[in-house]
Design a protein around this nucleic acid. Structure first.
Lengths: 210, 210
DNA sequence: CTCTATCGGTGATTATGGTTACTTACAAAA
DNA sequence: TTTTGTAAGTAACCATAATCACCGATAGAG
């Protein structure tokens, strides 16, 4: 079975019985790009594993400002939904499908059941926490110690790593992610172009440095 | 036994056998205020539970700038050391005893053993991750969306919550925690004093608002 | 009691990045 | 082909906070 095979590759090192239960009780959902998967303040009833596509996690404040945290891609799980699922808590963050996305959603009750039943599930959960925690540490590092030009470079490189050299983002979208303004991003990107790091196109840019 | 009793209160809802093992294999360490408990780049071999005192967790960049993340107090555990312990990874953060501190350190091998053996330990680990992750989210919120005056207020309130109305910190120490400069903090605190929020003393301040 | 080190207060200046206000460029719809 | 909407470029200006320079206050050390 194709799904089964692909699943083994995306999430390696789980126990055989766990794969079966994941297939049996997990719910595969296909959502189009742009779908909101998690809203700040919402109560969460299931955990998400990403099978395909890219999901963006970001913070939103009361005035509607946004701040990019990190992306999830295939083979990764949403730590926030795990965390919240646990005690049916409310999310502090927002998640959005950046591309068409295929998800495996796992109802709350299995989260808990599998933790005692499958050691590999336990490790998976821990690993998910750890890597997301580390992403947040990196993000804090950026925002606490660096100026806008360095933060922009870090951000753009991250996008290039995920989407390839040719990234489809407007200056406005980038500005929103960095909680800056379009003019500032345009200025800085123009400078990067003059320095031969990128080529700016309408609605996209191409990374040519390194 | 006094230690045993106190331990039950600090870390409630663990299994009886786990309390015994914690007592047997955990190592109680008393360290004086100012001790570095975790250094960025260091490999970690044990997890820490805080029995008494306050431990500060902060980031440090290459140029020696600091940025305060959160404090741990009695009844809390260090998520970073749990995370790093797991795969013997290197710490990205620094931890320091802010007061005289009593710790229970747990060697790496028991971390893992207890996860399969005691369900309550499992929950404890998960809970620790969750609450620290949420602290980081709040920190990101502050730094991403707020100005210095609001961040300072948030920071000072946090200290008051932990140390009481009378907090012993110099302006320089506060500035370092917020990765700002002493002059900026002095100015803002003077304004808070004029507004009747605090009383400034040499080496300390008192919170009088609310 | 005096000296010295540290802490805190404050004005002036500067740098970073946010804001305002247009302009130009492009692409799809009419 | 003209219209219209959105993206991007740019200059001028402003706000926040970092930096520089200095002074006064206070607490310990001698």
């Amino acid at each position: 079975m194709n799904d089964q095979k692909q699943f083994h590759e995306l999430f390696p090192n789980l126990e055989e019985g766990l794969y079966e239960e994941l297939m049996q009780y997990g719910d595969i959902k296909e959502v189009p790009a742009g779908t909101a998967l998690l809203k700040a303040g919402q109560t969460i009833r299931s955990t998400m594993l990403v099978l395909d596509g890219i999901v963006k996690l970001y913070q939103e404040d009361d005035e509607g400002n946004e701040f990019f945290m990190y992306n999830l891609q295939q083979g990764q799980a949403c730590a926030v939904s795990m965390i919240c699922t646990y005690q049916q808590e409310k999310s502090q963050v927002t998640a959005k499908a950046m591309t068409d996305v295929v998800l495996l959603t796992i109802p709350l009750e299995y989260m808990d059941k599998w933790l005692s039943k499958y050691k590999s599930w336990h490790y998976f959960v821990i690993k998910t926490y750890r890597s997301r925690y580390e992403e947040l540490l990196k993000t804090i590092n950026e925002i606490a110690f660096k100026n806008m030009d360095e933060r922009l470079e870090f951000y753009l490189k991250k996008q290039v790593k995920q989407f390839g050299k040719h990234v489809k983002l407007t200056h406005q979208e980038i500005a929103t992610d960095l909680n800056s303004s379009r003019e500032v991003i345009s200025r800085l990107m123009k400078k990067m172009e003059r320095n031969g790091w990128i080529i700016i196109n309408r609605n996209s840019f191409e990374w040519i440095k390194d």
